[in-house]
Structures are given as C-alpha cells and as structure tokens.
Nucleic acid binder design. Structure first.
Lengths: 131, 131
DNA sequence: ATAAAAGTTGGAGTGCACTCCAACGCAAGC
DNA sequence: GCTTGCGTTGGAGTGCACTCCAACTTTTAT
C-alpha cells in the first residue's frame, strides 16, 4: 500500500499528475486510508506503468482514457475486441514512427559527418554553400 | 519561386504556420514579390523540409531556432562545431526514442495476442483478472 | 506534545505549438 | 475592370498535458 509520494518517486510522475490522472478517469478512484489519503495497490502501479508506456510512445490522454473506460466496462466480447483494436491502432502508429525516426537518424548521421569534414579541412572553402 | 499557398500544399504546413515560423526566426525573411507577397526559393523549401524532419523526430522549436541562429552566424569553426553538437545531441535522443518505441511495440504485440486469445476462447473464464 | 513533512481539494495558471481573426491589399481569370 | 480568391499584418485564442496555488488536514519523527 503505497502513498502518493512513494508512487510519484517510483514512476517519475509528480503527485499533481497522479491526482490529475485520477481526476480525469485514467486511474480508477484509488482507495483511501483513514484521513482520506490515497493508498495505491500493486495493481494501480502496474496499470500506471502501462499507461506510462503508452504515453512514452505518444498516445494522447484522450486515447488512454478510451482504453481505461473499456477496461471498466468489463470483459465482454465487444469490449475486448475494442481494446485490442485500440492497441493495434497504436501499435501501427508506433511502427510507423519508428520508421520515421530511423530514416531521420540516418539523415542526421550523414549531416553530422559532413560537419566533421568541414571542421577537419578548414571551413574557408565552404563560405558559399551554407547548408 | 513559390507562393505561400504552394509551399503549404507541398509541405503540409498551413500558411499560418509558415508565417509563424518566419516570425519567430526559424526561416530567414522570405523574399517578397511586388505587393509584399512571399516568394519562396528552392533553398527555403529545402531548409523547411529539413526542419520538418527535425520536428517529426520531436525537436522543439526552441532547439531548431538555436540551430537556425547558428546557420545565420556563418561557417566559423565554432559555429560548425556547435551545429554539429546540436545535431549529435538530437541524434542521440532519436536513437534513444527508437529503443523506447521498439520495446513498447513488443509489449503491445504481446498484449494484442493475449486479447486475441481471450476473444477466441470465450472470455467467461477470465472475469477475475481484468488486465 | 509538537513541529515538520506529506497529503487533501477546487480551481487557476503555464508552456508549447500552433490556429484563427479582423480588416485589409494584390493578383489572375473572365 | 471587376470579381474571386490568395495574401498581408498584429494580436488574440485554442488544445494538450500538465503544474501550481491557497488553505487546510493528517501523518510521522523527535
């Protein structure tokens, strides 16, 4: 049973953000101890860590919210199919994004090498073509 | 010599954004035709396309601006070294981001397969563990 | 018992990257 | 030569995802 501070430390989120995620419905209401303070369970932490991976791969909160809402619906055939589709759509976007990053990484490495060349041979001869 | 509309169509940016990029200094002031309308040159387009690849890989405008400002400085040894470092730092981030995306893509594919399994065998048996 | 640290709420504020608006000026096609 | 639409400016507004504030309560450490 973790306090909000402990969860913040473990996940790298701020306490503000944890409360915010709960407020908007990304997290189910976290159980409270005496005095009304949040006590996070293992399962809350696991769910949060999954959300963070969605976030790290660029999924907007809006989409995470749609997934969270389906989780609350329960395991009906429709809900399971919908959740699978949400994840599959995101997986496609991630794959596409990987391709974009890889091609640009190559471009960058090419440019970096050109800079290295310019810096090695004196740059005087290149005043004209400033790419 | 392209009009702002033509450049917008080619790059996918809006005309608003093109003016905005010029206003903040990402683009050098674009030459104007009679009447003050922008006429983009080939070099403006090439620079813009490079910026778009930086943007597509998550570089903030602030950093693109730093690079653009160094380009204006000219090809001094210091400026070339600085620009190379800016690109190298970004390349590192991109490589890191690719790693994150790839590991999460695997996770997603695993989860998608689990959903497929649930949907195939009737989901009744899984009411307890709603991951 | 008390002081310091950690937690609570609703609501306002922030930074980024656009995005749109009003009011107007030029340009290309018929 | 007139209309239709493309272009101009400064400045205000938007959506996202936090982030902070004020005023307060609860918990923990000494």
């Amino acid at each position: 049973m973790l306090t909000i501070g402990a969860v913040a430390a473990q996940t790298g989120l701020t306490e503000h953000t944890l409360r915010y995620y709960e407020k908007i419905g990304l997290l189910d209401p976290v159980p409270r101890g005496p005095g009304g303070q949040r006590r996070y369970r293992e399962q809350d932490l696991r769910w949060l860590e999954f959300l963070l991976r969605l976030r790290a791969t660029g999924m907007p909160l809006r989409d995470m919210l749609a997934y969270a809402e389906q989780r609350r619906v329960g395991n009906t055939a429709e809900s399971l199919a919908l959740r699978r589709k949400l994840l599959a759509a995101h997986a496609d976007k991630v794959a596409e994004e990987i391709a974009v990053l890889q091609s640009t990484l190559q471009l960058l490495q090419g440019k970096i090498d050109i800079y290295r060349g310019w810096e090695a041979s004196l740059p005087l001869s290149y005043q004209l073509d400033k790419e």
